[in-house]
């Protein structure tokens, strides 16, 4: 009896030892910083950066219109920029989906070494530095860039086209960075697709379009939704892509946050903006988790 007790105690000690480093690190350098950021968003900005420790919910009033005091005014531009960011993120999700979905079928129909090679080639650019990938699109799109030079030398256009500093160029940059995030989950669900169900639907008289809409699309939906969530989140908060491919013409919430921290030094306002993004992310992730749980329950029943 005493022996098994000692073994249990030793197992407990090992477990505590194994979990201690992560627990310590994530509480001190992750949970506490995030909590402090939440507190900061309700504090008064100091005159020369920093904060005054007064209750000050008016940072949110500047963005949302309420609550306000005598010093802070509601400016609709912040909401507009936020909506524009959401719109760019949604467009990024749509375009990455349209690009990745057929590609997933293309790869899933291969076999053996060819398939591994294709997967390798599609995954590899994911490891290219984000800045370098954005830089590549600057070289392609700028007035003296690849596309304009080719179009001008063939005589199709006289003046260089304005390809940079538009929502279009920002979306292209985002799509280029985030395509692997969409491809991999979609590929996982396309790979699992049970073709006997596809055949059954045809035997029962469905035409190809019906089969696609009623069988293939629903069966691959988990991958599509999963991919959409993990593309939307980084696209919403990204500030590097709009900084280079959007210039001063296209502003996203990430740029506002960056500026309020590193230029105007209004930290509480930046923290409030960041929390707005976080709220969006939390809602999306909760939705995704509850959907997965429901799917798992149905799987068991």
């Amino acid at each position: 009896m005493a022996g098994s007790g000692a073994i249990l105690a030793r197992k407990r000690r090992t477990l505590i030892l194994l979990l201690a480093p992560l627990t310590l690190m994530l509480s001190v350098f992750f949970l506490i910083p995030l909590s402090i950021m939440v507190i900061y968003s309700f504090l008064e900005p100091g005159l020369y950066g920093g904060v005054e420790w007064n209750w000050y919910p008016y940072n949110y009033g500047r963005i949302l219109g309420w609550p306000l005091n005598d010093f802070e005014t509601f400016e609709v531009i912040y909401l507009k920029i936020f909506l524009n960011s959401a719109q760019i993120a949604v467009m990024t999700v749509i375009v990455t989906f349209l690009l990745s979905y057929p590609a997933a079928f293309w790869v899933s129909r291969m076999t053996g070494a060819r398939k591994n090679m294709a997967l390798f080639l599609i995954t590899l650019p994911f490891f290219a530095n984000m800045l370098v990938r954005i830089y590549a699109w600057l070289l392609l799109l700028r007035p003296t860039g690849f596309f304009n030079t080719i179009l001008q030398s063939t005589g199709l256009i006289a003046e260089p086209l304005n390809l940079l500093f538009t929502n279009f160029s920002v979306i292209i940059g985002m799509v280029y960075i985030l395509t692997p995030f969409m491809f991999l989950p979609i590929y996982a669900s396309v790979e699992k697709l049970d073709y006997s169900l596809v055949r059954a639907s045809q035997d029962l008289g469905a035409n190809p379009i019906q089969t696609f809409r009623r069988v293939i699309l629903p069966l691959t939906a988990p991958g599509i939704i999963g991919g959409s969530v993990i593309v939307f989140i980084p696209a919403l908060g990204n500030f590097i892509v709009p900084a280079f491919l959007g210039g001063s013409k296209v502003q996203m919430t990430g740029n506002l946050i960056e500026r309020s921290f590193l230029q105007s030094r209004d930290w509480p306002f930046g923290a409030a903006l960041a929390l707005l993004i976080m709220a969006f992310v939390v809602i999306l992730v909760m939705f995704q988790i509850s959907r997965q749980n429901r799917a798992a329950e149905r799987g068991i029943a």
């Binding site: 506490i32 910083p33 995030l34 950021m37 989140i233 980084p234 908060g237 930290w267």
Partner: peptide
Amino acid sequence: MIVPDIVLGIALLIF
């Protein structure tokens, strides 16, 4: 992994 980079970046900066 799901907290946006920019949020983690400024939270660490404040901390």
